[in-house]
């Protein structure tokens, strides 16, 4: 793989209201990982985990930011938002539990699979959240 010891960093804004455009940041990271020669299965895991987190930021928090750091050992994705926070993380991790409105469900999301899917594809998932302040979702995928 074409990665030396250096770290590649990228920052993205996740825009608030345009659900139809959600996923631009994940798409850009996917392209970058492919160009770096990361194995396709790993690229897919990163892409899906980041895309679900990006969608969550759009659905629940009015957008946010995504920071991506890649070194030769891992991809680290940090999604920050200033949304309402998650009152019960354990409950939010349950497959099928969702607080998303019907409008989101009509778009094919909000089925309570987002966080479980992120956990499924990440090697490590760390959620820091405070009600009324926001949430930081940190996804690590080992290379």
């Amino acid at each position: 793989m074409g990665l030396s010891n250096s770290i590649i960093r990228q920052n993205y804004i996740i825009p608030a209201d345009d659900f139809s455009l959600a996923g631009e940041a994940s798409s850009s990271v996917k392209k970058m990982l492919n160009q770096l020669g990361v194995p396709p299965k790993t690229v897919k895991r990163v892409s899906i985990a980041m895309y679900e987190a990006e969608i969550n930021a759009v659905i629940h928090a009015g957008g946010g930011t995504a920071d991506v750091a890649i070194d030769k050992e891992k991809v680290l994705i940090t999604i920050n938002d200033e949304g309402p926070g998650i009152p019960d993380v354990e409950l939010a991790m349950k497959e099928g539990f969702s607080t998303a409105p019907d409008s989101v469900r009509e778009m094919g999301f909000g089925a309570g699979m987002g966080l479980p899917n992120i956990k499924r594809y990440a090697d490590k998932l760390d959620i820091k959240t405070e009600v009324g302040k926001g949430t930081r979702v940190q996804i690590t995928v080992l290379l």
């Binding site: 659900f19 959600a22 996923g23 798409s27 897919k44 899906i48 778009m107 094919g108």
Partner: peptide, 17 residues
């Protein structure tokens, strides 16, 4: 195969190869 016809279907397909 899906009955949903919005851009996120294409985006999902992109992520899933």
């Amino acid at each position: 195969l899906t009955g949903l016809v919005n851009p996120q279907v294409v985006r999902t397909a992109e992520m899933m190869d």
